[in-house]
Simulated scan of single mutants.
Amino acid sequence: MDFTPDDAVALYDEMYRWDGVNVPSDRFFDRLVHDADAVLDVGCGTGMMLHQARDAGHTGRLVGLDPDLPSLRRARRRTDIEWVEGVASDASRWREEFALATMAGNAFQCLVTDEDLKVSLAAIHGALRVGGGFAFETRNPAARAWESWIPSTVHEITGGGWDLRQWHEVLSVEDDRVTFTETTARPDGTVLDVGRATLRFLGEAQLDALLTAAGFTVDLRHGDWSGGPVTDTSRSIITVATKR
């Protein structure tokens, strides 16, 4: 069988179903979205978070922004949400229109270059009203998550009509940037797809310097979804910053 980009995003939805009841990270974002009358989800992917918000009764403005057309095709199955093709810096099209901007699922790490970070944060800041919040999480570089991304760790994907295997392999670690592949294959090992990506791992001090320069104040910082502090073993750096 062919494995198309549309298959890839459908598989992603199967593997990472949004669940604000049982998944602490999803619950964290759901609460913030519920309390905001206008939300911009930057890197919305297939739109799962905003779909769930609307299903849960959110009556305000919901906008998803993402550069990946197969993801947006899947997101657009729901037509009572605004879906916009574009990267994070394209948030500059809006001026002080949102109470909350989000980057869930470690999407912030896709901002790889210094220029990406600078212009994207400026755009998100501009799209928020004064006092608006920007919520996101990143993987904590101190925990060195990429060391567990090895080909021998194979994820079995079954259910929803899928019977596949998936694994990761790190190609390079250069300063705070990690480049890796994600391979999807049949049970017999026949490779269907190999994706390649680079993520940037920024520590607290780097994040705070970038946010301050963009005009944000950090109001919340956790190292886990239970509200614990960031430590060397924390998997995440969870941040909510406010537009000054």
Rank of each mutant, 00 (worst) to 15 (best):
241 A>H: 02
70 P>F: 01
137 E>P: 10
192 L>A: 01
211 L>Q: 07
199 L>E: 12
206 Q>Y: 03
159 G>Q: 03
107 A>H: 14
58 H>T: 14
98 F>S: 02
132 G>R: 06
208 D>C: 06
141 P>K: 00
231 T>R: 00
105 G>T: 13
52 Q>P: 03
160 G>S: 02
17 R>G: 08
37 D>W: 13
83 W>D: 07
54 R>Y: 14
207 L>T: 12
3 F>R: 07
192 L>S: 04
117 L>E: 15
240 V>E: 02
25 S>F: 02
201 F>Q: 05
139 R>I: 06
198 T>F: 10
42 V>Y: 01
8 A>L: 10
31 R>F: 11
175 D>I: 04
217 T>F: 15
44 C>M: 07
227 G>H: 00
156 E>K: 03
35 D>P: 12
170 V>E: 08
119 V>T: 15
67 P>A: 00
238 I>F: 01
3 F>A: 06
116 D>S: 11
65 L>E: 04
164 L>P: 08
55 D>Y: 08
242 T>M: 05
158 T>L: 01
25 S>N: 06
234 S>T: 04
207 L>A: 08
218 V>W: 13
196 R>T: 15
169 E>Y: 10
219 D>Y: 03
57 G>H: 05
84 V>I: 15
72 L>P: 09
234 S>P: 10
206 Q>C: 03
84 V>G: 02
66 D>V: 10
87 V>W: 13
53 A>D: 13
132 G>N: 03
156 E>C: 01
173 V>L: 01
188 D>W: 10
186 R>D: 06
124 I>T: 14
152 S>M: 11
182 E>H: 10
63 V>P: 10
54 R>N: 04
78 R>M: 14
41 D>I: 10
73 R>V: 15
161 G>R: 00
101 A>F: 07
196 R>I: 12
201 F>W: 09
155 H>G: 00
26 D>F: 08
100 L>N: 07
97 E>C: 09
11 L>S: 00
24 P>H: 01
192 L>V: 02
103 M>R: 14
92 S>N: 09
134 F>N: 04
211 L>N: 09
141 P>H: 00
99 A>C: 04
137 E>G: 05
41 D>F: 12
183 T>H: 09
129 R>T: 13
115 E>P: 11
205 A>S: 15
104 A>Q: 11
115 E>D: 15
195 G>P: 05
6 D>I: 03
83 W>A: 04
227 G>C: 01
176 D>S: 01
235 R>K: 06
95 R>L: 13
166 Q>Y: 01
76 R>C: 13
25 S>A: 14
186 R>H: 14
98 F>T: 05
125 H>E: 11
2 D>M: 11
21 V>E: 13
88 A>V: 13
183 T>M: 09
196 R>P: 02
209 A>Q: 14
1 M>H: 12
187 P>I: 01
68 D>I: 03
241 A>R: 08
240 V>K: 05
231 T>A: 00
52 Q>K: 08
170 V>G: 02
13 D>R: 04
30 D>M: 15
40 L>I: 11
